[in-house]
Design a protein around this nucleic acid. Structure first.
Lengths: 217, 217
DNA sequence: ATAAACAATTGAACACCGTTCAATATGGGG
DNA sequence: CCCCATATTGAACGGTGTTCAATTGTTTAT
């Protein structure tokens, strides 16, 4: 088959991405390959390489969409809550919920590392940044005295923790008996972390309980 | 070449694992393949499949060794510390240090998922369990009133958090400027979490700060 | 209307991967 | 010394991602 002009490049790109999303959601990253995508959209492999630089590029786009959807979910959660501490807890649980409802897509986002040593593009980084921003906002309401840099650090520490629980849960390394226990872990982490924040910042440093870090600020 | 009896199967196995460890440490999981291992130990690919079920099996063994080495490091750290809170902080930092000094090996342990749907063998699970035990011990000293199950949960929440910070740091998703800032994140997470634990467990539940969970116990 | 120029599309081909197994070469027992 | 049991091989198979000469339909010029 030669020229047929059935679809524009943008359209082919869009079709490929939609198919790839479905495959990733159903079979995970392992189930995804160029020939499968190509045949599903009725084009050949060669056409994929006109529209995408390579498969890494394609997967990056799929992940970008997952991040966008995650942002939508998290953002809605953030808008619906009132008290900052309850808000942070709700954000963590929304994050966990997304991860558990779309495990394959979520895992693909965070486990996939490009083969090439190419840097993560800045537009993709921004999608991660704005997720952090959603955490920093209620955190600043919760601790208004936090200077911006420390707030960013505090948010990243908390979100790293939330993320870690999700990963260990999804990869089956938490090994917890019981149905909703991952949610409990999440609540434990967030509430204790926040309570500690309030406590440490609000009280003078006591030598037998504080370590060293908090006394400086 | 036919029979030569240069090495026993155990010896071939050992040689293969040592070579595989080096390759993983230097080039990561992506740099590892059967032919490379085979040529490095002076045998053919076929011999590898006599000694290992498949590459997944081989990688599992490599990861088991990484877990053992991690356990050694963490265990030593645990033995050297005095106060339980300082101990937990030291454990987290030792974990982070291992992850950053052996990034490829550490990532291979946690990011690799077997292709086959085969379960993780129980002897491998035990290696993960005993790592958690090292966390639960000082945690119980820190909070002697914790019932065993809640202690296990509390340890897993904390360790999930520690793990998450490591992962995000290693995959370049934290985006922190400065040298030792990941260490600071780790300290933030652990000290705040511990302070919160003490605070929440020790004081009666106040409606405006506590969420819901801690008031039940 | 016809031809020439152009561009979209293909799919065979290449180099790699994990895995298998018939063929083979050899150490050691009779 | 011969023969056999077996340790070892490596070509072969089906699967990757990726490339690019060849092909074929569309458009433009005459």
């Amino acid at each position: 088959m030669g020229r047929r002009n059935d679809h524009s490049r943008q359209e082919i790109r869009e079709m490929a991405l939609q198919v790839a999303e479905k495959i990733v959601a159903k079979e995970g990253l392992q189930g995804l390959n160029a020939r499968k995508i190509a045949s599903a959209i009725g084009y050949s492999v060669g056409s994929l390489y006109i529209v995408f630089e390579n498969l890494d590029d394609l997967i990056l786009q799929v992940n970008a969409r997952s991040l966008d959807q995650l942002y939508t979910v998290i953002s809605k959660t953030e808008q619906q809550c009132r008290q900052p501490d309850a808000c942070l807890l709700a954000l963590g649980q929304a994050y966990l919920e997304f991860a558990m409802e779309q495990p394959q897509r979520w895992r693909t986002v965070f486990e996939y590392q490009r083969t090439k040593d190419a840097e993560i593009p800045s537009w993709y980084r921004k999608k991660i940044f704005r997720l952090f921003k959603l955490v920093e906002k209620p955190l600043l309401e919760f601790m208004p005295t936090l200077e911006p840099h420390l707030c960013a650090q505090t948010a990243r520490a908390l979100w790293g923790g939330v993320h870690g629980i999700c990963i260990l849960a999804l990869t089956g390394r938490l090994e917890i008996v019981g149905a909703d226990s991952v949610q409990n872990l999440m609540e434990l982490l967030i509430t204790n972390y926040l309570a500690g924040l309030k406590n440490v910042q609000g009280t003078p440093c006591t030598p037998e309980e504080g370590t060293t870090q908090e006394c400086k600020a």
